[in-house]
Amino acid sequence: MIDTESKNLQVREKKEMTNPTEHTKPGFVFNPAVDILEKGEEIILLADMPGVKAKDLFIDLRDNVLTIEGGIETSEETGKVNILREYNVGKYYRKFSISEVIDQSKIDAQLKNGVLRLKLPKVEKAAPRKITVKTA
């Protein structure tokens, strides 16, 4: 599925979370844009999280709930005056409930240029066992 003719990108404002769980630190919390796709025995999740460093990324999967959290280092530089501010900077947070059984030990996460690529391998289905009914 490749877009052969590339269209022009439209402005989309960052989606601020409407009902975040309360955070102890003040600041903005955004919902990262994600792609979720199924490729064979894997579920792949791609999330746009510009500015997040690998050490500030937190991924958790328990009770079929996947939580992605990306912290942002905000360094207030002194002496700078804002002239124009079109976007705000804040952490990213998003939760998904996953219906498939995921093999926890094989989860793989990569963060590259602000894009997270998360591989969630499904647990191999137990081979169907045929039960023969013996008749006496």
Binding site: N8, L9, Q10, V11, R12, E13, K14, D48, M49, P50, G51, E77, G79, K80, V81, N82, I83, L84, R85, E86, Y87, K112, N113, G114, V115
Partner: peptide
């Protein structure tokens, strides 16, 4: 696109934009 932030100090203008990937 893209959304930008512009700041200035006494020596320079600083433009930043979020362009993931």
């Amino acid at each position: 696109f893209p959304l930008i932030n512009v700041a200035e100090d006494k020596d320079a203008y600083h433009v930043s934009a979020e362009l993931p990937g």
